[in-house]
Measured scan of single mutants.
Amino acid sequence: HHGSGALAALHADGPHAGLPVTRSDARVLIFNDWEERKRSEPWLRLDMSDKAIFRRYPHLR
Rank of each mutant, 00 (worst) to 15 (best):
A8P: 14
H1Q: 12
D47P: 01
R61C: 13
H2D: 08
H1I: 15
I53K: 09
L60D: 00
N32V: 10
H11W: 10
G3Q: 14
S49N: 02
P15F: 05
G3S: 09
R56F: 05
A6L: 13
A9I: 14
A52I: 07
K38P: 06
L46S: 00
L19P: 02
Y57R: 00
L44T: 06
P42G: 05
L10N: 09
D25V: 12
A17Y: 10
A26T: 00
K38G: 04
S40V: 11
L7Y: 11
S40H: 08
A9R: 10
A26Q: 00
H11E: 04
D47E: 05
R23D: 08
R37I: 06
F31Y: 15
I30V: 06
R27T: 04
P15Y: 06
G3M: 13
L29H: 04
R61P: 05
L44N: 03
H2C: 14
P42L: 03
F31V: 04
D13H: 11
S24F: 14
D25H: 03
S40Y: 15
T22H: 08
W43P: 01
M48S: 04
P42F: 04
P42T: 05
R23K: 15
P42R: 07
G5P: 13
H11D: 03
T22K: 09
L46W: 01
D33E: 14
T22W: 08
D13W: 08
R37D: 10
S24M: 15
R27M: 13
D25M: 03
R55V: 07
D47S: 05
L19N: 07
L60H: 01
T22F: 03
F31C: 10
E41I: 02
H2N: 07
V28C: 12
A17F: 11
I30F: 13
N32W: 09
G3P: 09
D13Y: 07
D25K: 11
P42K: 04
R45T: 10
N32H: 12
I30M: 08
A9T: 14
R23E: 06
A12F: 11
A12P: 10
V28Q: 11
L10Y: 05
F31Q: 06
S40C: 15
D25S: 06
A6Q: 10
R61A: 13
V21A: 08
D47C: 04
R37A: 09
I53G: 00
W34S: 01
E36F: 12
I30Q: 00
W43I: 03
G5D: 09
S49L: 02
M48Q: 06
H1A: 09
D13F: 08
H11F: 07
T22I: 05
A12T: 15
P15W: 05
A9E: 08
H11L: 07
D33C: 10
R27F: 03
D47H: 03
P42S: 04
L10H: 02
S40L: 09
L29Y: 03
D13L: 09
P58A: 02
D25F: 02
S49D: 03
G14W: 04
L60F: 05
G5V: 12
N32S: 08
P15G: 04
R27I: 06
G5W: 10
A17R: 14
K51R: 11
N32I: 13
H16K: 06
Y57C: 00
D33N: 07
P58K: 05
R23I: 15
R23T: 11
L60W: 01
A12L: 13
E41N: 09
A26P: 01
H2E: 12
K51V: 09
H16L: 15
E41V: 07
G14F: 03
P20A: 01
E36I: 14
V21W: 02
D25R: 01
A12E: 13
K51Q: 11
A6N: 13
D50V: 11
G3Y: 14
A8V: 14
P20Q: 02
H59Q: 01
E41Q: 08
K38H: 14
R39W: 09
I30S: 00
M48T: 11
E35T: 14
F31E: 04
E35H: 06
I30Y: 02
Y57A: 00
Y57P: 15
E41A: 06
K38A: 07
P58L: 02
S4F: 10
T22Q: 06
G3V: 14
D25Y: 07
I30W: 01
V28K: 11
S40R: 13
I30T: 02
W34E: 01
A26K: 00
H1M: 10
A52N: 10
S24Q: 10
M48I: 13
R37S: 04
F54C: 08
S40M: 07
D13T: 10
E36L: 15
K38S: 08
R23G: 06
K38Q: 11
P58V: 03
D25L: 02
K51F: 13
L29W: 03
D13C: 11
H2V: 09
F54G: 06
L19Q: 05
A12I: 14
S4L: 09
P58W: 03
L44R: 05
S49R: 04
I53A: 00
K51S: 13
P58R: 01
E35N: 11
H16P: 03
A17D: 03
P58T: 02
S24H: 14
S4A: 10
A8C: 09
A8F: 09
M48G: 02
E35I: 15
L19Y: 05
H16S: 07
A52L: 05
A6M: 10
V28Y: 07
G3E: 09
R37C: 00
A8H: 11
G18Q: 09
N32M: 11
L19F: 05
S40A: 13
P20F: 15
H59T: 04
A6G: 11
N32G: 07
R61N: 11
S4I: 11
G14V: 15
F54E: 07
D47F: 03
M48D: 06
A17M: 13
R37F: 02
L29N: 05
L19C: 07
R61F: 08
K51D: 11
W34L: 00
G14E: 03
V28D: 02
S49H: 01
N32K: 14
H11V: 05
Y57K: 00
G5T: 11
A9L: 09
H59E: 01
I53T: 01
D47Q: 03
N32C: 11
R23A: 10
W43M: 07
D47W: 02
L7Q: 14
A17S: 10
A52Y: 15
L44G: 03
L7R: 12
T22R: 08
I53D: 00
D50Y: 07
D13Q: 12
A8K: 06
A6H: 12
D13G: 10
A26L: 01
R39E: 10
R55Q: 13
W34A: 00
L46R: 00
S4G: 08
F54L: 12
W43Q: 10
G5N: 10
H2S: 12
D25I: 02
A26Y: 04
A52R: 00
R45K: 12
A6I: 15
P15N: 07
E41K: 10
V21Y: 05
A52H: 06
L19H: 02
D50K: 07
A6W: 13
S4M: 13
K51T: 12
R37Q: 09
G18Y: 05
R27N: 02
R56H: 10
A26F: 01
S4H: 07
R39L: 11
A9W: 08
A6Y: 14
W34K: 00
L44I: 08
L7P: 12
L7N: 08
H16E: 03
P42Y: 05
V21T: 05
W43H: 09
H16A: 06
S4W: 13
H11P: 03
R37G: 05
P58H: 02
N32F: 07
P15S: 06
N32E: 08
A9V: 14
A8Y: 13
G14A: 04
K38M: 10
R27K: 12
G18M: 10
P15C: 06
I53M: 05
M48L: 11
